[in-house]
Write a protein that binds this DNA or RNA. Structure first.
Lengths: 234, 234
DNA sequence: ACAAAAGTGTTCAGAGTACACCCATGT
DNA sequence: ACATGGGTGTACTCTGAACACTTTTGT
Protein backbone atom coordinates (compact mmCIF):
# COMPACT_ATOMS: atom_id res chain seq x y z
CA UNK A 1 0.00 0.00 0.00
CA UNK A 2 1.61 3.20 -1.14
CA UNK A 3 1.90 6.28 0.95
CA UNK A 4 -0.84 8.30 -0.67
CA UNK A 5 -3.34 5.72 0.45
CA UNK A 6 -2.35 5.91 4.07
CA UNK A 7 -5.44 6.81 6.04
CA UNK A 8 -6.20 10.49 6.52
CA UNK A 9 -7.50 9.67 9.98
CA UNK A 10 -6.56 7.37 12.83
CA UNK A 11 -10.00 5.82 12.76
CA UNK A 12 -9.89 4.81 9.13
CA UNK A 13 -9.30 1.09 9.16
CA UNK A 14 -9.87 -1.69 6.66
CA UNK A 15 -13.07 -3.67 7.07
CA UNK A 16 -14.52 -6.92 5.80
CA UNK A 17 -16.58 -6.76 2.63
CA UNK A 18 -19.35 -9.27 2.04
CA UNK A 19 -21.69 -10.04 -0.82
CA UNK A 20 -25.29 -11.03 -0.05
CA UNK A 21 -27.47 -12.45 -2.80
CA UNK A 22 -31.17 -11.94 -3.19
CA UNK A 23 -32.18 -14.74 -5.52
CA UNK A 24 -35.62 -14.68 -7.09
CA UNK A 25 -37.43 -17.52 -8.72
CA UNK A 26 -40.99 -18.38 -9.56
CA UNK A 27 -42.79 -21.39 -8.19
CA UNK A 28 -46.47 -22.13 -8.50
CA UNK A 29 -47.05 -18.73 -10.08
CA UNK A 30 -45.62 -16.95 -7.04
CA UNK A 31 -42.45 -14.98 -6.63
CA UNK A 32 -40.06 -16.74 -4.27
CA UNK A 33 -36.80 -16.04 -2.55
CA UNK A 34 -33.92 -18.45 -2.05
CA UNK A 35 -32.63 -18.41 1.53
CA UNK A 36 -31.17 -20.74 4.06
CA UNK A 37 -31.87 -21.48 7.66
CA UNK A 38 -28.99 -20.71 9.98
CA UNK A 39 -28.06 -23.54 12.24
CA UNK A 40 -25.36 -21.84 14.28
CA UNK A 41 -25.60 -19.12 16.88
CA UNK A 42 -26.11 -16.28 16.85
CA UNK A 43 -29.45 -16.16 15.09
CA UNK A 44 -29.81 -19.91 14.79
CA UNK A 45 -33.14 -20.75 13.25
CA UNK A 46 -33.42 -17.41 11.48
CA UNK A 47 -33.60 -17.23 7.75
CA UNK A 48 -30.63 -15.70 6.00
CA UNK A 49 -29.71 -14.60 2.51
CA UNK A 50 -26.85 -16.36 0.81
CA UNK A 51 -23.67 -14.47 1.47
CA UNK A 52 -19.91 -14.74 1.80
CA UNK A 53 -16.90 -12.47 2.14
CA UNK A 54 -15.05 -10.92 -0.77
CA UNK A 55 -11.48 -12.12 -1.24
CA UNK A 56 -8.67 -9.59 -1.59
CA UNK A 57 -7.67 -10.67 -5.03
CA UNK A 58 -11.09 -10.74 -6.60
CA UNK A 59 -13.40 -7.91 -7.67
CA UNK A 60 -16.69 -7.50 -5.87
CA UNK A 61 -18.64 -8.52 -8.97
CA UNK A 62 -16.46 -11.59 -9.39
CA UNK A 63 -17.12 -12.41 -5.77
CA UNK A 64 -20.84 -12.14 -6.40
CA UNK A 65 -20.64 -14.62 -9.25
CA UNK A 66 -18.41 -16.95 -7.31
CA UNK A 67 -20.68 -16.89 -4.30
CA UNK A 68 -23.76 -17.55 -6.36
CA UNK A 69 -21.96 -20.44 -7.99
CA UNK A 70 -20.67 -21.91 -4.74
CA UNK A 71 -24.07 -21.82 -3.13
CA UNK A 72 -26.28 -22.84 -6.02
CA UNK A 73 -24.06 -24.35 -8.68
CA UNK A 74 -25.39 -21.87 -11.22
CA UNK A 75 -23.39 -19.77 -13.64
CA UNK A 76 -24.23 -17.15 -16.28
CA UNK A 77 -27.19 -15.91 -14.36
CA UNK A 78 -28.88 -12.53 -14.62
CA UNK A 79 -27.37 -10.62 -11.72
CA UNK A 80 -27.46 -7.02 -10.77
CA UNK A 81 -25.89 -5.00 -8.03
CA UNK A 82 -28.56 -3.65 -5.73
CA UNK A 83 -27.04 -1.47 -3.05
CA UNK A 84 -24.27 -1.25 -0.54
CA UNK A 85 -25.46 -1.74 3.02
CA UNK A 86 -23.03 -0.01 5.28
CA UNK A 87 -24.46 0.61 8.74
CA UNK A 88 -21.53 0.37 11.11
CA UNK A 89 -23.57 -1.79 13.52
CA UNK A 90 -25.37 -3.89 10.94
CA UNK A 91 -23.51 -7.00 12.01
CA UNK A 92 -23.06 -7.46 15.75
CA UNK A 93 -19.96 -9.56 15.11
CA UNK A 94 -17.88 -6.73 13.73
CA UNK A 95 -17.64 -4.19 10.98
CA UNK A 96 -18.80 -5.67 7.70
CA UNK A 97 -19.84 -3.72 4.64
CA UNK A 98 -22.28 -5.71 2.54
CA UNK A 99 -22.85 -5.37 -1.16
CA UNK A 100 -26.22 -6.82 -2.08
CA UNK A 101 -26.87 -8.37 -5.49
CA UNK A 102 -30.09 -9.73 -6.86
CA UNK A 103 -30.58 -12.34 -9.51
CA UNK A 104 -33.27 -14.11 -11.40
CA UNK A 105 -33.13 -17.82 -12.01
CA UNK A 106 -35.19 -20.33 -13.90
CA UNK A 107 -36.53 -22.50 -11.17
CA UNK A 108 -37.97 -25.40 -13.07
CA UNK A 109 -34.85 -26.02 -15.08
CA UNK A 110 -32.42 -25.88 -12.28
CA UNK A 111 -33.97 -26.52 -8.96
CA UNK A 112 -32.52 -29.98 -8.65
CA UNK A 113 -29.02 -28.69 -8.37
CA UNK A 114 -29.69 -26.68 -5.25
CA UNK A 115 -30.74 -29.66 -3.27
CA UNK A 116 -27.50 -31.39 -4.10
CA UNK A 117 -25.18 -28.52 -3.43
CA UNK A 118 -26.53 -26.73 -0.53
CA UNK A 119 -27.34 -27.90 2.87
CA UNK A 120 -30.30 -25.96 3.97
CA UNK A 121 -31.33 -23.63 1.19
CA UNK A 122 -34.99 -23.35 0.40
CA UNK A 123 -37.49 -21.20 -1.40
CA UNK A 124 -39.71 -19.02 0.71
CA UNK A 125 -42.64 -16.81 -0.10
CA UNK A 126 -41.81 -13.15 -0.22
CA UNK A 127 -44.18 -12.39 2.62
CA UNK A 128 -41.80 -14.13 4.99
CA UNK A 129 -39.17 -11.48 4.43
CA UNK A 130 -39.53 -10.16 7.95
CA UNK A 131 -38.06 -13.40 9.28
CA UNK A 132 -34.70 -12.64 7.72
CA UNK A 133 -31.70 -12.06 9.94
CA UNK A 134 -29.78 -8.76 10.39
CA UNK A 135 -30.63 -6.22 7.71
CA UNK A 136 -31.39 -8.94 5.17
CA UNK A 137 -35.06 -8.08 5.31
CA UNK A 138 -34.28 -4.54 4.27
CA UNK A 139 -32.15 -5.87 1.44
CA UNK A 140 -34.88 -8.16 0.19
CA UNK A 141 -37.52 -5.41 0.37
CA UNK A 142 -35.34 -3.09 -1.64
CA UNK A 143 -34.59 -5.84 -4.13
CA UNK A 144 -38.28 -6.48 -4.69
CA UNK A 145 -38.97 -2.80 -5.22
CA UNK A 146 -36.06 -2.73 -7.64
CA UNK A 147 -37.23 -5.81 -9.48
CA UNK A 148 -40.73 -4.41 -9.88
CA UNK A 149 -39.45 -1.07 -11.09
CA UNK A 150 -37.10 -2.78 -13.49
CA UNK A 151 -39.75 -5.16 -14.72
CA UNK A 152 -41.89 -2.24 -15.81
CA UNK A 153 -39.26 -0.81 -18.13
CA UNK A 154 -36.91 -3.61 -19.12
CA UNK A 155 -37.81 -6.97 -20.58
CA UNK A 156 -36.30 -8.95 -17.72
CA UNK A 157 -39.28 -11.24 -17.27
CA UNK A 158 -37.63 -13.56 -19.76
CA UNK A 159 -34.77 -14.26 -17.41
CA UNK A 160 -37.10 -16.32 -15.28
CA UNK A 161 -38.22 -18.59 -18.11
CA UNK A 162 -36.70 -21.49 -20.01
CA UNK A 163 -35.57 -20.97 -23.61
CA UNK A 164 -38.91 -21.94 -25.04
CA UNK A 165 -42.02 -20.80 -23.30
CA UNK A 166 -45.66 -20.00 -23.89
CA UNK A 167 -47.23 -16.57 -23.73
CA UNK A 168 -49.21 -17.66 -20.74
CA UNK A 169 -46.06 -18.56 -18.88
CA UNK A 170 -44.61 -15.16 -19.62
CA UNK A 171 -47.78 -13.50 -18.48
CA UNK A 172 -47.73 -15.44 -15.25
CA UNK A 173 -44.16 -14.34 -14.62
CA UNK A 174 -45.25 -10.74 -14.86
CA UNK A 175 -48.25 -11.35 -12.67
CA UNK A 176 -46.00 -12.94 -10.09
CA UNK A 177 -43.50 -10.08 -10.16
CA UNK A 178 -46.02 -7.27 -10.17
CA UNK A 179 -48.43 -9.15 -7.94
CA UNK A 180 -51.60 -8.22 -9.75
CA UNK A 181 -53.68 -9.69 -12.58
CA UNK A 182 -52.94 -8.64 -16.17
CA UNK A 183 -55.38 -8.63 -19.08
CA UNK A 184 -54.23 -11.40 -21.35
CA UNK A 185 -55.48 -9.83 -24.59
CA UNK A 186 -53.61 -6.59 -24.05
CA UNK A 187 -50.56 -8.50 -22.95
CA UNK A 188 -50.52 -10.67 -26.07
CA UNK A 189 -51.12 -7.72 -28.34
CA UNK A 190 -48.30 -5.75 -26.89
CA UNK A 191 -45.77 -8.52 -26.68
CA UNK A 192 -46.45 -9.85 -30.16
CA UNK A 193 -46.00 -6.36 -31.58
CA UNK A 194 -42.83 -5.72 -29.61
CA UNK A 195 -40.64 -7.91 -31.77
CA UNK A 196 -39.32 -9.55 -28.62
CA UNK A 197 -40.81 -12.92 -29.42
CA UNK A 198 -39.95 -15.39 -32.12
CA UNK A 199 -42.91 -17.71 -32.68
CA UNK A 200 -42.07 -21.38 -33.04
CA UNK A 201 -44.17 -23.95 -34.80
CA UNK A 202 -44.12 -26.26 -31.81
CA UNK A 203 -46.85 -26.39 -29.26
CA UNK A 204 -46.74 -27.15 -25.59
CA UNK A 205 -49.54 -29.58 -24.87
CA UNK A 206 -48.82 -30.08 -21.21
CA UNK A 207 -51.42 -27.63 -19.99
CA UNK A 208 -54.33 -28.00 -22.37
CA UNK A 209 -55.85 -30.20 -25.00
CA UNK A 210 -55.52 -27.54 -27.63
CA UNK A 211 -51.91 -26.85 -26.85
CA UNK A 212 -50.29 -23.43 -26.89
CA UNK A 213 -47.58 -22.13 -29.14
CA UNK A 214 -44.05 -21.83 -27.90
CA UNK A 215 -41.87 -18.77 -28.37
CA UNK A 216 -38.22 -17.90 -28.08
CA UNK A 217 -36.71 -14.51 -27.20
CA UNK A 218 -35.43 -12.40 -29.98
CA UNK A 219 -32.00 -11.76 -28.50
CA UNK A 220 -31.37 -8.82 -30.80
CA UNK A 221 -34.53 -6.93 -29.97
CA UNK A 222 -34.01 -7.93 -26.39
CA UNK A 223 -30.59 -6.28 -26.27
CA UNK A 224 -31.89 -3.18 -27.97
CA UNK A 225 -34.91 -2.81 -25.74
CA UNK A 226 -32.83 -3.54 -22.66
CA UNK A 227 -30.84 -0.45 -23.43
CA UNK A 228 -33.57 1.82 -24.70
CA UNK A 229 -36.08 0.79 -22.13
CA UNK A 230 -39.49 -0.62 -22.92
CA UNK A 231 -42.60 0.06 -20.96
CA UNK A 232 -44.37 -2.99 -19.58
CA UNK A 233 -46.98 -0.76 -18.07
CA UNK A 234 -49.56 -3.36 -17.12
CA UNK B 1 -14.71 -9.89 15.99
CA UNK B 2 -16.50 -13.01 17.06
CA UNK B 3 -15.71 -16.43 15.81
CA UNK B 4 -18.57 -16.78 13.35
CA UNK B 5 -17.18 -13.88 11.40
CA UNK B 6 -13.76 -15.40 11.04
CA UNK B 7 -13.00 -15.64 7.34
CA UNK B 8 -14.09 -18.77 5.55
CA UNK B 9 -10.97 -18.48 3.45
CA UNK B 10 -7.35 -17.53 3.95
CA UNK B 11 -7.64 -14.88 1.28
CA UNK B 12 -10.52 -13.04 2.85
CA UNK B 13 -8.99 -9.93 4.38
CA UNK B 14 -10.40 -6.60 5.44
CA UNK B 15 -10.03 -3.78 2.93
CA UNK B 16 -10.32 -0.02 2.90
CA UNK B 17 -13.71 1.43 2.03
CA UNK B 18 -13.97 4.83 0.37
CA UNK B 19 -16.79 7.14 -0.58
CA UNK B 20 -16.55 9.10 -3.82
CA UNK B 21 -19.02 11.89 -4.52
CA UNK B 22 -20.38 12.86 -7.90
CA UNK B 23 -21.70 16.36 -7.30
CA UNK B 24 -23.92 17.96 -9.90
CA UNK B 25 -24.77 21.61 -10.24
CA UNK B 26 -26.01 23.90 -12.97
CA UNK B 27 -24.06 26.87 -14.24
CA UNK B 28 -24.88 28.91 -17.30
CA UNK B 29 -27.67 26.51 -18.19
CA UNK B 30 -25.24 23.61 -18.37
CA UNK B 31 -24.88 20.58 -16.16
CA UNK B 32 -21.58 20.67 -14.30
CA UNK B 33 -19.55 18.39 -12.12
CA UNK B 34 -17.60 19.38 -9.01
CA UNK B 35 -14.10 17.92 -9.03
CA UNK B 36 -10.64 18.80 -7.91
CA UNK B 37 -7.27 18.73 -9.55
CA UNK B 38 -4.79 16.39 -7.93
CA UNK B 39 -1.49 17.99 -7.11
CA UNK B 40 0.37 14.97 -5.82
CA UNK B 41 1.65 11.93 -7.61
CA UNK B 42 0.50 9.56 -8.79
CA UNK B 43 -1.92 11.14 -11.23
CA UNK B 44 -0.89 14.71 -10.46
CA UNK B 45 -2.75 17.06 -12.75
CA UNK B 46 -5.63 14.66 -13.30
CA UNK B 47 -9.12 15.55 -12.28
CA UNK B 48 -10.59 13.59 -9.41
CA UNK B 49 -13.93 13.19 -7.73
CA UNK B 50 -14.19 14.20 -4.11
CA UNK B 51 -13.58 11.18 -1.95
CA UNK B 52 -12.33 9.99 1.42
CA UNK B 53 -12.19 6.78 3.43
CA UNK B 54 -14.95 5.51 5.64
CA UNK B 55 -14.16 5.40 9.36
CA UNK B 56 -14.72 2.22 11.35
CA UNK B 57 -17.25 3.74 13.67
CA UNK B 58 -19.42 5.45 11.10
CA UNK B 59 -21.92 4.06 8.62
CA UNK B 60 -21.17 4.40 4.94
CA UNK B 61 -24.05 6.83 4.47
CA UNK B 62 -22.82 8.91 7.40
CA UNK B 63 -19.40 8.92 5.82
CA UNK B 64 -20.91 10.18 2.58
CA UNK B 65 -22.56 13.09 4.37
CA UNK B 66 -19.46 13.87 6.37
CA UNK B 67 -17.26 13.81 3.31
CA UNK B 68 -19.59 16.08 1.37
CA UNK B 69 -19.60 18.45 4.30
CA UNK B 70 -15.86 18.41 4.81
CA UNK B 71 -15.18 19.12 1.17
CA UNK B 72 -17.92 21.63 0.39
CA UNK B 73 -19.30 22.89 3.68
CA UNK B 74 -22.79 21.81 2.64
CA UNK B 75 -25.32 19.86 4.67
CA UNK B 76 -28.83 18.54 4.07
CA UNK B 77 -28.19 17.96 0.43
CA UNK B 78 -30.00 15.64 -1.92
CA UNK B 79 -27.76 12.62 -2.00
CA UNK B 80 -28.20 9.16 -3.35
CA UNK B 81 -26.09 6.04 -3.38
CA UNK B 82 -25.10 5.18 -6.91
CA UNK B 83 -23.11 2.00 -6.99
CA UNK B 84 -20.29 0.11 -5.37
CA UNK B 85 -17.15 0.03 -7.49
CA UNK B 86 -15.19 -2.99 -6.48
CA UNK B 87 -12.61 -3.95 -9.09
CA UNK B 88 -9.72 -5.44 -7.17
CA UNK B 89 -7.22 -3.40 -9.21
CA UNK B 90 -9.20 -0.19 -9.42
CA UNK B 91 -6.68 1.65 -7.27
CA UNK B 92 -3.03 0.88 -7.98
CA UNK B 93 -2.17 1.84 -4.41
CA UNK B 94 -3.97 -1.08 -2.81
CA UNK B 95 -7.33 -2.72 -2.37
CA UNK B 96 -10.02 -0.09 -1.94
CA UNK B 97 -13.71 -0.65 -2.40
CA UNK B 98 -15.43 2.58 -3.38
CA UNK B 99 -19.05 3.45 -2.77
CA UNK B 100 -20.11 6.22 -5.14
CA UNK B 101 -22.79 8.73 -4.18
CA UNK B 102 -24.27 11.48 -6.31
CA UNK B 103 -25.83 14.70 -5.18
CA UNK B 104 -27.52 17.76 -6.53
CA UNK B 105 -26.69 21.19 -5.21
CA UNK B 106 -27.97 24.67 -5.78
CA UNK B 107 -25.02 26.38 -7.30
CA UNK B 108 -26.05 30.01 -7.14
CA UNK B 109 -26.88 29.90 -3.48
CA UNK B 110 -23.83 28.15 -2.30
CA UNK B 111 -20.92 28.46 -4.58
CA UNK B 112 -19.07 30.93 -2.41
CA UNK B 113 -18.52 28.41 0.31
CA UNK B 114 -16.57 26.03 -1.86
CA UNK B 115 -13.92 28.50 -2.68
CA UNK B 116 -13.33 29.11 0.98
CA UNK B 117 -13.22 25.54 2.08
CA UNK B 118 -11.54 23.64 -0.54
CA UNK B 119 -8.24 24.04 -2.14
CA UNK B 120 -8.64 23.15 -5.70
CA UNK B 121 -12.24 22.23 -6.31
CA UNK B 122 -13.85 23.50 -9.44
CA UNK B 123 -16.80 22.95 -11.71
CA UNK B 124 -16.18 21.25 -15.00
CA UNK B 125 -18.35 20.55 -17.99
CA UNK B 126 -19.60 16.99 -18.19
CA UNK B 127 -17.83 16.43 -21.47
CA UNK B 128 -14.53 16.50 -19.63
CA UNK B 129 -15.41 13.33 -17.79
CA UNK B 130 -12.78 11.35 -19.61
CA UNK B 131 -10.09 13.36 -17.82
CA UNK B 132 -11.03 11.86 -14.48
CA UNK B 133 -8.57 9.67 -12.65
CA UNK B 134 -8.90 5.90 -11.94
CA UNK B 135 -12.44 4.66 -12.49
CA UNK B 136 -13.93 8.04 -11.63
CA UNK B 137 -14.93 8.57 -15.22
CA UNK B 138 -16.96 5.40 -15.13
CA UNK B 139 -18.58 6.56 -11.92
CA UNK B 140 -19.50 9.93 -13.37
CA UNK B 141 -20.91 8.37 -16.55
CA UNK B 142 -23.08 6.06 -14.53
CA UNK B 143 -24.18 8.91 -12.31
CA UNK B 144 -25.28 10.96 -15.30
CA UNK B 145 -27.21 8.05 -16.73
CA UNK B 146 -28.80 7.61 -13.33
CA UNK B 147 -29.62 11.27 -12.97
CA UNK B 148 -31.27 11.37 -16.38
CA UNK B 149 -33.26 8.24 -15.73
CA UNK B 150 -34.32 9.56 -12.35
CA UNK B 151 -35.16 12.97 -13.73
CA UNK B 152 -37.65 11.40 -16.10
CA UNK B 153 -39.70 9.82 -13.36
CA UNK B 154 -39.11 11.74 -10.16
CA UNK B 155 -39.44 15.45 -9.62
CA UNK B 156 -35.82 15.92 -8.62
CA UNK B 157 -35.22 18.91 -10.83
CA UNK B 158 -36.29 21.05 -7.91
CA UNK B 159 -33.28 20.04 -5.88
CA UNK B 160 -31.13 22.15 -8.14
CA UNK B 161 -33.13 25.34 -7.65
CA UNK B 162 -33.51 27.88 -4.86
CA UNK B 163 -36.74 27.98 -2.83
CA UNK B 164 -38.40 30.42 -5.15
CA UNK B 165 -37.91 30.04 -8.86
CA UNK B 166 -39.51 30.78 -12.18
CA UNK B 167 -40.90 28.26 -14.60
CA UNK B 168 -38.22 29.16 -17.07
CA UNK B 169 -35.52 28.34 -14.54
CA UNK B 170 -37.11 24.95 -13.89
CA UNK B 171 -37.32 24.33 -17.60
CA UNK B 172 -33.69 25.19 -18.05
CA UNK B 173 -32.74 22.75 -15.31
CA UNK B 174 -34.47 19.98 -17.19
CA UNK B 175 -32.91 21.04 -20.44
CA UNK B 176 -29.51 20.94 -18.78
CA UNK B 177 -30.06 17.51 -17.28
CA UNK B 178 -31.62 15.91 -20.33
CA UNK B 179 -29.43 17.86 -22.71
CA UNK B 180 -32.06 18.66 -25.29
CA UNK B 181 -34.54 21.48 -25.84
CA UNK B 182 -38.02 21.22 -24.33
CA UNK B 183 -41.17 22.85 -25.65
CA UNK B 184 -42.04 25.52 -23.12
CA UNK B 185 -45.80 25.41 -23.68
CA UNK B 186 -46.04 21.68 -23.05
CA UNK B 187 -43.73 22.02 -20.08
CA UNK B 188 -45.80 24.79 -18.47
CA UNK B 189 -49.05 22.96 -19.11
CA UNK B 190 -47.82 19.80 -17.52
CA UNK B 191 -46.11 21.34 -14.53
CA UNK B 192 -48.97 23.68 -13.70
CA UNK B 193 -51.41 20.80 -13.79
CA UNK B 194 -49.19 18.56 -11.69
CA UNK B 195 -49.91 20.29 -8.42
CA UNK B 196 -46.18 20.43 -7.76
CA UNK B 197 -46.01 24.21 -7.96
CA UNK B 198 -47.42 26.83 -5.64
CA UNK B 199 -47.74 30.11 -7.53
CA UNK B 200 -46.58 33.18 -5.65
CA UNK B 201 -47.74 36.70 -6.32
CA UNK B 202 -44.19 37.95 -6.60
CA UNK B 203 -42.40 38.38 -9.86
CA UNK B 204 -38.77 38.05 -10.73
CA UNK B 205 -37.84 41.03 -12.85
CA UNK B 206 -34.18 40.25 -13.23
CA UNK B 207 -34.50 38.60 -16.62
CA UNK B 208 -37.15 40.62 -18.44
CA UNK B 209 -39.05 43.86 -18.43
CA UNK B 210 -42.31 42.03 -18.04
CA UNK B 211 -41.12 39.91 -15.16
CA UNK B 212 -42.01 36.27 -14.58
CA UNK B 213 -43.95 34.77 -11.73
CA UNK B 214 -42.16 32.93 -8.97
CA UNK B 215 -43.22 29.54 -7.66
CA UNK B 216 -42.47 27.35 -4.67
CA UNK B 217 -42.58 23.55 -4.49
CA UNK B 218 -45.59 21.95 -3.02
CA UNK B 219 -43.75 19.73 -0.55
CA UNK B 220 -46.75 17.48 -0.05
CA UNK B 221 -47.34 16.72 -3.70
CA UNK B 222 -43.61 16.47 -4.08
CA UNK B 223 -43.38 13.74 -1.45
CA UNK B 224 -46.30 11.89 -2.94
CA UNK B 225 -45.02 12.06 -6.50
CA UNK B 226 -41.52 11.16 -5.38
CA UNK B 227 -42.90 7.88 -4.17
CA UNK B 228 -45.45 7.16 -6.86
CA UNK B 229 -43.26 8.35 -9.67
CA UNK B 230 -44.21 11.02 -12.15
CA UNK B 231 -43.30 11.00 -15.77
CA UNK B 232 -41.33 14.00 -16.98
CA UNK B 233 -41.31 12.58 -20.42
CA UNK B 234 -40.08 15.56 -22.37
C1' DA C 1 -42.19 52.53 -30.81
C1' DC C 2 -39.66 48.73 -30.12
C1' DA C 3 -37.06 45.09 -28.12
C1' DA C 4 -37.11 41.08 -25.17
C1' DA C 5 -38.83 37.71 -22.57
C1' DA C 6 -43.45 35.86 -20.62
C1' DG C 7 -47.41 33.70 -21.33
C1' DT C 8 -51.20 31.17 -23.74
C1' DG C 9 -54.59 26.78 -26.87
C1' DT C 10 -55.56 23.58 -30.29
C1' DT C 11 -55.01 19.73 -33.08
C1' DC C 12 -53.24 15.08 -34.03
C1' DA C 13 -51.35 10.56 -33.37
C1' DG C 14 -50.20 6.73 -30.59
C1' DA C 15 -50.63 3.94 -26.45
C1' DG C 16 -53.05 2.08 -22.70
C1' DT C 17 -57.38 0.14 -21.02
C1' DA C 18 -61.58 -2.18 -20.76
C1' DC C 19 -64.19 -5.70 -22.27
C1' DA C 20 -66.66 -10.96 -24.27
C1' DC C 21 -66.76 -14.47 -27.37
C1' DC C 22 -65.25 -18.36 -30.57
C1' DC C 23 -61.61 -22.12 -31.36
C1' DA C 24 -59.27 -26.52 -31.13
C1' DT C 25 -58.75 -30.74 -29.10
C1' DG C 26 -58.61 -34.91 -25.87
C1' DT C 27 -61.56 -37.54 -23.27
C1' DA D 1 -70.85 -33.62 -26.47
C1' DC D 2 -68.41 -31.22 -23.49
C1' DA D 3 -64.92 -29.36 -20.68
C1' DT D 4 -60.60 -26.90 -20.72
C1' DG D 5 -57.49 -23.64 -21.65
C1' DG D 6 -55.94 -20.93 -26.12
C1' DG D 7 -56.60 -17.38 -28.95
C1' DT D 8 -58.71 -13.04 -31.09
C1' DG D 9 -60.72 -7.38 -32.16
C1' DT D 10 -62.90 -2.99 -31.18
C1' DA D 11 -64.08 1.32 -29.14
C1' DC D 12 -62.74 4.85 -25.83
C1' DT D 13 -59.70 7.78 -23.27
C1' DC D 14 -55.64 9.89 -22.06
C1' DT D 15 -51.20 11.62 -22.76
C1' DG D 16 -47.40 13.35 -25.36
C1' DA D 17 -45.94 16.10 -29.39
C1' DA D 18 -46.03 19.65 -32.61
C1' DC D 19 -46.77 24.20 -33.49
C1' DA D 20 -47.15 30.50 -33.59
C1' DC D 21 -48.90 34.47 -31.87
C1' DT D 22 -50.16 38.03 -28.22
C1' DT D 23 -48.92 40.45 -23.85
C1' DT D 24 -46.32 43.30 -20.82
C1' DT D 25 -43.24 46.82 -19.77
C1' DG D 26 -38.65 49.31 -19.43
C1' DT D 27 -35.96 52.07 -22.26
Amino acid sequence: MTKYLSPQYEDVKPMLTAVDCIIFGIQETKLKLLVFKREVEPFAGCLSLLGRFVKVEESVSEAAERILFELTGLENIYMEQLHCFGRFDRDPGGRVVAIAYWSLIRVDQNHLEFNVRSHETKWISIDRISELVLDHGEMAELAIANLREKARFRPIGFELLPEEFTLRQLLMVYEAILDHPIDSRNFRKKLLNSGLLIPLTKKDKSTSKKGSFLYKFNQETYQKLSQEGYSFGF
